[in-house]
Simulated assay, not measured.
Amino acid sequence: MVQVENEIGFLGSDRDYSDHGNEQFNDSIPDELAAIFGKVGSWKEAFADDAEEYFMAFHYARAIERIASSGSDEYALPMFVNAWLEQFPWTPGSYPTGGPIAKVMQIWKATAPTICLYAPDI
């Protein structure tokens, strides 16, 4: 197996607030997420209080998929990632925002289909 990433996520904040991050966050959610969740609009309009974490999960999963699928093309090995789990105070940023935790698993599985195993870091 190949561990593509270790405890991926954005620690210390709920999302990327760079100019590019803000521009992407204010755009409409991707069509594939609109189809999965039955929602449309900007990230905030579609996902309300979960918008920041869903935004980061989608973009991390998309990046990991590019890496994992390229690696898998070269070596037919199972690919996995692990996650730093949610922890007190249970807010994105107190654990790495956007990592493959339970509440964003649907996004990760749809966006990074090459990943075959999601492991908790315990």
Rank of each mutant, 00 (worst) to 15 (best):
Ala35Met: 09
Phe10Ser: 05
Ser94His: 12
Leu117Glu: 14
Asp31Arg: 11
Leu117Pro: 04
Gln87Cys: 13
Ala57Asp: 06
Trp108Glu: 03
Glu65Gln: 12
Arg62Met: 11
Ala51Ser: 10
Ala61Leu: 06
Gln24Arg: 09
Gly38Arg: 10
Pro96Ala: 08
Met1Tyr: 11
Tyr60Asn: 06
Ala57Pro: 07
Arg62Ser: 12
Ala57Tyr: 05
Pro78Ile: 10
Phe80Asn: 01
Phe37Arg: 11
Glu7Asn: 14
Leu11Glu: 15
Phe10Leu: 15
Ile36Arg: 15
Ala61Thr: 10
Tyr75Gly: 10
Thr91Asn: 07
Pro30Ser: 05
Met1Ser: 02
Ile122Gln: 04
Pro120Leu: 01
Asn82Val: 03
Phe58Ser: 10
Thr114Trp: 00
Gly38Pro: 12
His20Cys: 14
Ala102Lys: 07
Phe47His: 00
Cys116Leu: 03
Trp108Asp: 09
Asp73Met: 07
Val81Phe: 03
Ile101Gln: 08
Pro100His: 07
Ala35Leu: 10
Phe47Asp: 05
Tyr60Cys: 13
Asn6Trp: 05
Ile8Ala: 07
Ala46Gln: 05
Glu65Ile: 02
Tyr118Arg: 11
His59Gln: 09
Pro92Asn: 03
Trp90Pro: 00
Tyr54Thr: 02
Asn6Arg: 02
Thr97Met: 08
Tyr95Ile: 13
Tyr118Lys: 09
Glu74Leu: 15
Ala48Gly: 09
Phe47Leu: 05
Ile64Asp: 05
Ala51Met: 06
Tyr60Thr: 06
Asn82Ile: 00
Phe88Thr: 14
Arg15Ser: 06
Asn22Ala: 10
Gly41Cys: 01
Pro113Ile: 07
Val40His: 08
Pro89Ser: 09
Gln3Asp: 02
Phe47Pro: 02
Ile101Glu: 04
Phe80Leu: 00
Ala48Glu: 08
Tyr17Phe: 08
Phe25Arg: 13
Ala76His: 14
Tyr54Trp: 03
Ile8Ser: 01
Ile115Gly: 01
Val2Asn: 12
Phe55Ser: 10
Val104Trp: 08
Lys39Val: 14
Asn82Trp: 00
Glu86Phe: 15
Trp108Ile: 04
Pro89Phe: 10
Glu53Asp: 12
Thr91Val: 11
Gln106Asp: 14
Asn26Pro: 00
Asp27Arg: 14
Asn6Leu: 04
Glu74Asp: 11
